[in-house]
Design a protein around this nucleic acid. Structure first.
Lengths: 231, 231
DNA sequence: TGTATTTTATATGTATCCAATACAATAATT
DNA sequence: AATTATTGTATTGGATACATATAAAATACA
């Protein structure tokens, strides 16, 4: 589970910081579900796994805390944050509100090359989905949405959306995978892109909202079932 | 500039962690304008000032980085984040969008005691404004808006708004203070509360949007002037 | 046997120390 | 004189060691 493969490779690739590498890895381990809701993240254990001291691990935990992925309490340690079902629902509604606004602004200024690039990403996204490579899927799903909104020229809103995406991605991966939710999402992505290409803002936004809220509803239902089962 | 006055006072008040105290202090020093845009935050200097080692300071800097108040680069250190004027404008428009949505939801479920509490906060807010106590003003201004939206039952959206508020508060304090912007804001707060008390959601939301966007416009103008002066 | 208290272990919080990097100032070479 | 090396210094990054708090386990007592 070491971040760096070997000392010999170190000076070739490394231009990043230890916490940055560890963060990426730990974040992915949380999003992938390796660590469950409420599970404790012990500094010593993680430090050992990554072959570093507790210090960089602590910084990463602080960062993940700020992202809302882990909660920390003094002298008690860090645990994976659990988001109540109603708040997951809220986050999807929030996405719908913000992304609709973003897409309106984006479509106005969208060039053909914007659409071409989004289409490229969508291609990769579909591949990773078929491969079942959920780590790539998560990254590319965000990349696709992000690419659509980029022409809007709204970096702050984009950052907020990125944060929201990060918080719900774990639940999407865990629960939407077992339903047909992702299949539907794949088809909807194509349709959104088509409407953007036509520069039909109204239809695109309406469809986008449905896309997000539908995924939200499916996920919330799956979550409620799973959590009721755990009682 | 020590956080803890003396060892004898320590055990009376302290039930919090060192990073938490330092964070609060450092955040306030950034918001107050003691540290300017782009100014370097040197770990050793801060550690000395607070009478602690660099370790808790580093954690605080990481947290503030996650909030968007400082930017860090490996081996280069931390500097106070500077937000471009257009992005300040964007943040106000984002607030308008989100807070309008929140107020609609909140008014539906708002009780008389909700309004009474908001009115209490508004009283304190006006006092701190007259005293020129900007640290309290910042805290209470957020407390007022937060209290209005609390009945909506939307903690995630509230958290997003809190983050946005944190990022723009510094500019509000620095520039809205010298214009008549805050005077106007004071009067508008009363009007919003009045419309809430009447449960007139439509009028309240319309007015709230104007309130936010007006403050934004005034601030952006002041910012452009100040930044043009610095050439 | 159940509860309360003391003890002990484990994990976190903080300080200090050492290493790596970046920046600046100076020297050397063209 | 200008430009490139080089060296020196300041600052950050990371590891180790120590202090402190929490939680669990064991023991004492009712």
């Amino acid at each position: 589970m070491a971040v760096l493969e070997s000392p010999s490779e170190r000076h070739e690739i490394e231009r990043r910081s230890l916490p940055a590498d560890i963060r990426e890895s730990l974040q992915e381990r949380i999003l992938s579900g390796e660590f469950r809701d409420g599970e404790a993240l012990v500094q010593d254990v993680l430090a050992e796994e990554y072959g570093v001291s507790r210090m960089p691990v602590r910084e990463v935990l602080r960062q993940l805390e700020a992202c809302g992925l882990v909660s920390m309490q003094t002298h008690k340690g860090a645990v994976v944050t659990s988001i109540p079902t109603e708040q997951v629902e809220e986050l999807f509604e929030l996405r719908a509100l913000l992304e609709a606004d973003m897409l309106v602004r984006a479509i106005r200024r969208m060039t053909d090359s914007d659409i071409a690039e989004a289409r490229d990403i969508l291609g990769e996204l579909e591949q990773s989905y078929r491969r079942g490579d959920m780590a790539s899927w998560g990254r590319l799903n965000w990349a696709f949405h992000r690419r659509l909104y980029l022409p809007a020229g709204r970096p702050q809103t984009l950052a907020v959306l990125h944060g929201i995406n990060l918080r719900v991605e774990r639940y999407i991966r865990l629960h939407l995978l077992v339903t047909d939710g992702l299949d539907t999402a794949e088809r909807e992505h194509r349709e959104i892109l088509r409407l953007c290409a036509l520069r039909d803002a109204e239809a695109a936004v309406a469809f986008l909202k449905l896309h997000i809220l539908d995924a939200g509803r499916t996920l919330v239902m799956a979550l409620r079932q799973a959590r009721a089962a755990d009682h």
